[in-house]
Design a protein around this nucleic acid. Structure first.
Lengths: 116, 116
DNA sequence: GTTTGCAATCGTAAATCTACGATAAACGAA
DNA sequence: TTCGTTTATCGTAGATTTACGATTGCAAAC
């Protein structure tokens, strides 16, 4: 039965979860890092940098695109992938909000309430 | 054949991906938010607040615990769940590092290199 | 038009995730 | 000890994810 009950949650919760999920795989973290370091479209070079096949990398890129973190533009025979600043602005916003709500350090007594 | 090639990636990449993955579901985002808002252990109250069954909530809590974001202490017949400040410190660090590397705004020309 | 090279998609397989009900375990209270 | 409450775990089912090779599609080059 599964079939996700995602619809039962907030729009913001789903958006944040989608972004987090996109970053929830080491390969995709590595990809966005590579794209950021080069500050350029790495196209198929990603395949050379990663221990994955071309089709798998393409799939990961598709997910990052779906999450709005990466853009792909056709550039002749190859495809230029860039980070999408707008998507990262949303990510920064949502993740920042979440982190701001979370306990900041161990001596924060508020995180360990009396009932414990 | 799949079986994840996670071992091929950096320790930091895997750690970050694991944290992101834990936050990659709306229910788990909702859970940590609930725990933060109450700043208390909500135990089985979470089940009342969420559109999920008790066993499913328990499973999500298990994953959050595995990611180090949540702690559970037995408190008599019930279990007290609290956010783990240490885990969130790591999350803040790793996510902060990543976000710092990413493009900050649309007019950042560096994010759209010449080859595009 | 044909070939070449790169990337997306298809098909496949195994593993994992999501979700639930049912059951078991742990604890306090009666 | 027995009962009720609370939570974890087991078993199950379907969907999704991860990964790969093979194929297709597309644009430039020949």
């Amino acid at each position: 039965m599964a079939t996700h009950k995602r619809a039962e949650f907030t729009e913001a919760e789903q958006r944040l979860a989608a972004i987090a999920k996109a970053l929830g795989h080491p390969a995709r973290v590595a990809i966005v890092r590579l794209l950021a370091q080069r500050r350029a479209c790495v196209c198929g070079e990603l395949v050379l940098e990663l221990p994955l096949s071309q089709s798998t990398v393409s799939q990961h890129l598709k997910e990052l695109k779906a999450a709005g973190l990466v853009q792909g533009e056709v550039d002749g025979p190859r495809v230029c992938y860039c980070l999408d600043p707008a998507g990262w602005a949303v990510a920064r916003q949502l993740l920042g909000n979440l982190l701001a709500e979370m306990p900041t350090s161990v001596p924060d007594t508020a995180a360990v309430p009396s009932c414990c």
